[in-house]
Design a protein around this nucleic acid. Structure first.
Lengths: 339, 339
DNA sequence: ACTTTTTGTGCACACGTTTGCACAATATTA
DNA sequence: TAATATTGTGCAAACGTGTGCACAAAAAGT
C-alpha cells in the first residue's frame, strides 16, 4: 500500500511531455506522432511503467474483468469448461475472476461482489440468478451469460449445448442395438441440462413407449454425479430383468454406474448393459471406461461465450445460442444378447 | 459504460449527510453514531448502492484481488488445489483472478497483467517466475507465493508439501512388502515436486542400493501425466524381470501406469506389480484403481496460502512452509510373490 | 501570400472513493 | 460553572488515469 507507484506523470516528466500524451501513447487509436510515441514507450519500459488499470477503469467506467461463477470444480465438465474459458478469455484480453456459488444465497452474494468490480460481464455456470438480482444487473448494464442453465430472466444471454439432438442420438443408438428395456439416470436435484436430457430422451422414445415396444425407467438417485451413478447401478441391476440400455445425464454419472456395475454387481460392460454418457470428458476415452458418449465441446462454448461478451456492446439484444453435439461411439454400446 | 452509477454522493444527499459519512458507514472501525449508520445503510440498500471497489482501490492503493496463475486445469491436482483456493480465498474476502501460463513467456506476460490490477498477492502453481520479474514484484511490493514450486527468487514465499516424508513412506511400504526391484516413474520435463520426489525416494533407498539389496529404475517417459504413466508401463513391463514395486510421481501417472499394465500388458495389480501414487486425488479412491498413495491435502495448502497472504503485511519476511503428508494404503501394495 | 484543413500536444475536469484535519456538539471532570 | 475530553460529522485533497476542448504549428489548397 505504501510504496509510491510509477505513474504516467513520472514518464511524462522524463520524456518532457504532458500526461495526456503519455496516456495517448498507450491507446491504439490516438493521434500521436510516431516519434514521440516511440520515445515515450521506450522511457516507460525503462522505468518499468505499467498503466494502472484500476485508475483506467475508474475513468472509463469499464474493465476487462469478467466474473465467472461456478459451484466449485467438483463437476468434471465444469473443470474442462472453465479451463477453456480461462484461456479463451485471456486470449481476448479479458480476465476472469472466479467465484464459488454452491447455493442460491451464496450465488446472490457472489454476484453482488462482482458488481462492485465493474465487471464487463458475468458468466454463470451453476445455479440461476433470481430475477431480482437479474434486474439489478440489467439496471447496471452488466450482461449476464448463462451456460447450460435455464433462464427465468429473459435479459440473460443463453448458451446451451444441443441437449435435444444429443438425447435423440442416444435413443437412436440404443434402439438400433436392439435394446427394449431402457433407463435414464440423472439425479434427484438435477441441473437444468440433466433434466432436459431426460425430457428429450423420453420424447425421442415417446412413440415406441406408447406402442409398448419400449419401457423407460427414469432413475433419480439421491446423490449427484459419480456416486449417484454408482448408487443407481446398485439399485437398478439387482433384479434379473434389469434395463440393458442406459443413458446417463453425464459421463461422470456413467463412470459411477459402470464401476458399480462391474465391481459391485459383477456385470460386464457392454455385454450385460450398454451405457451412453454425455460430455465426452477426457476420462471417457481411457481404457477402464472406453465410454460411448455425446460430445459437447467446451472450446466451442468458450468461444461462443467470448464472442457474446465482445459483441454485446454493438448488439445488446440477449442471445440464444445452441452448441452442436456429436455422438462418439466407443465401446460401451453392444447389440442386445439374445436370451 | 454509459449509465450513471449510484454513488456515495447520491446516498449522502438522500440521507442528508456528507459523502465522508457514507463512506465511513461501510468501514467497520470508523466512529459513526449507530443511528446515522443504520439510516445510511438502509437508504443505501433501498437505492441499491454498492461501494465501488475500483474507486476504493484507487485511493487505498490496494485491492482484494489475488492473482492465481496455473498452466490450465489439465493437471488433476491443480484442479483440486485451485478449487480449494477459490473457496478459501472467497471465505476470506479475497477474489482470485485466474491466468493461464503454459510456458515461461506466457507466465511473464500474465504476471505483468496482474501487476496492472494492483493485486494483493500472486499465487503461482506452475512454472517459476524469472528472477527479473520477481525483482519487479519486490519493487512493487506485491508478494509472490510459490505452490509446490522451486524458488530461485528468495523473496518469494514457498509452500510445499512434504515430499521427503512422502517418498520415504513410499519406499518403506514397498520394502516392507518385500519388493527388491523398484522403479520411480516421473516425466522427462518434470515439475519441481516430481523431481524432488524422485530424489528423496532414491535417498531413502540409498543404503540398500549401495548394499546391492535393491535396484531402482528412474523412468522418465517423454510425456507427462496419465499418458506418461501409460507409456512407462508399456516400456517397463515388457521384460519378464520387470520391477515389482513402482512409485509414481503423481496419482495421475499411477492411473496411466495401472491402466496400461492391466489393459495392455495383461498384468494384475497389485499381484504382479505394486503401485504407489502421490496426491490422493478423488479418482484414487474409486473402484477401478483403489490406489495406495501419499495424500497431500489441498485444503491445508489453500489455508496456508490464505494465511500467508493475510499475515504478509505484519510479517513481510518470506515464509517457507511445509505441508504434512500421509500414506493412505488402499489396495495396490501387496507382498511380493515368491517365485 | 493568404486562407483553410490537418496534425500533434497541453489544460483541466471528471471518475468515486478514503482520510487527515478541523470543528461543533455533547459528555465528563474539577 | 468553567475547563477539558470525547464523539460525530464535514471539508477538501488526494489516488492515476482518459478525453473534450482549445490552440499552435505545419501542410494543403487557392
Amino acid at each position: 500500500m505504501k510504496p509510491k507507484n510509477i505513474t504516467s506523470a513520472d514518464v511524462a516528466r522524463l520524456a518532457g511531455v504532458s500526461r495526456s500524451t503519455v496516456s495517448r501513447c498507450f491507446k491504439a487509436d490516438s493521434r500521436i506522432s510516431d516519434n514521440t510515441r516511440k520515445r515515450v514507450i521506450e522511457i516507460a519500459d525503462q522505468v518499468g511503467y505499467q498503466v494502472n488499470k484500476i485508475a483506467r477503469s475508474m475513468i472509463t467506467r469499464e474493465s476487462d474483468l469478467v466474473g465467472v461463477v461456478s459451484s466449485g470444480l467438483h463437476d468434471p465438465f465444469a473443470v474442462v469448461l472453465i479451463d477453456q474459458l480461462i484461456t479463451t478469455l485471456q486470449q481476448r484480453g479479458l480476465h476472469p475472476i472466479l467465484l464459488d456459488a454452491s447455493n442460491e444465497t451464496q450465488l446472490e452474494i457472489s454476484i453482488k461482489k462482482l458488481a462492485q468490480y465493474q465487471v464487463k460481464s458475468i458468466i454463470i455456470t451453476s445455479g440461476s440468478p433470481s430475477s431480482a438480482i437479474g434486474a439489478q444487473f440489467v439496471s447496471l448494464n452488466i450482461p449476464v451469460i448463462l451456460l447450460n442453465r435455464a433462464g427465468q430472466l429473459d435479459q440473460a444471454n443463453l448458451i446451451n449445448c444441443d441437449n435435444r439432438t444429443g438425447s435423440t442420438l442416444a435413443a437412436k443408438a440404443l434402439i438400433e442395438a436392439g435394446h427394449r428395456n431402457l433407463a435414464f439416470i440423472n439425479s434427484k436435484n438435477s441441473t437444468y441440462s440433466g433434466t432436459k436430457r431426460g425430457e428429450f430422451f423420453e420424447q425421442a422414445l415417446a412413440l415406441k413407449i406408447e406402442a409398448g415396444e419400449i419401457t423407460l425407467h427414469q432413475v433419480l438417485p439421491s446423490k449427484t454425479g459419480y456416486v449417484g451413478g454408482y448408487e443407481a447401478a446398485l439399485d437398478l441391476l439387482k433384479n434379473l430383468d434389469h434395463p440393458t440400455g442406459v443413458y446417463c445425464a453425464t459421463d461422470n454419472v456413467a463412470c459411477g454406474f459402470i464401476d458399480a456395475a462391474k465391481f459391485e454387481m459383477g456385470k460386464k460392460i457392454p455385454e450385460d448393459v450398454s451405457v451412453i454418457g454425455f460430455d465426452d470428458l477426457p476420462i471417457a476415452a481411457r481404457a477402464p471406461y472406453n465410454l460411448s458418449t455425446i460430445r459437447q465441446c467446451p472450446t466451442d462454448i468458450a468461444q461462443a461465450t467470448a464472442d457474446c461478451i465482445q459483441t454485446i456492446d454493438t448488439s445488446p439484444k440477449p442471445k440464444r445460442i445452441i452448441i452442436p453435439v456429436k455422438f462418439i461411439n466407443r465401446g460401451t454400446v453392444a447389440p442386445i444378447k439374445i436370451a
